[in-house]
């Protein structure tokens, strides 16, 4: 269910780091809790985001949930697909429906994040 090469937050975001670029998304568990997602409010290109701070939100018809940035850095790319196809967040949250790509400014922050096994255990217990 949860890819081994990703790291996770307790707020249900995932991050995949390649070089100094981190791809961020929401987890399968998060999309399941929210139900049918209708909109993702994402940071602007070039915005600076900070680990653990709100960087946007995802909305279903009856709920809204903040997205907390798993790492600090600068937003290099925003997933345009979600503007027209928010349903991808339900269909493929760990793949096609990534949210943003960040240039990481504090690589050591990743130590604070959960492994796939830890996250699996965390949501299992939640």
């Amino acid at each position: 269910m949860y890819p081994e090469n990703y790291r996770y937050t307790k707020e249900h975001e995932w991050v995949r780091v390649e070089g100094n670029i981190a791809t961020v998304g929401i987890t399968h568990h998060a999309q399941e809790e929210l139900g049918d997602i209708v909109y993702a409010d994402l940071p602007k290109l070039g915005a600076n985001v900070e680990q653990g701070k709100t960087m946007g939100s995802v909305e279903s018809v009856k709920a809204v949930s903040d997205i907390f940035s798993p790492l600090s850095g600068e937003v290099m790319e925003v997933n345009e697909l979600l503007a027209t196809k928010p349903e991808k967040l339900n269909e493929d949250p760990h793949g096609e429906a990534w949210l943003v790509k960040i240039r990481v400014t504090a690589p050591s922050e990743i130590e604070a994040l959960l492994s796939a096994a830890d996250y699996q255990a965390y949501v299992g217990a939640e």
């Binding site: 909109y39 279903s60 928010p86």
Partner: peptide, 8 residues
Amino acid sequence: DEVAAARR
């Protein structure tokens, strides 16, 4: 279908 209404 309130979901479709909100998505598009």
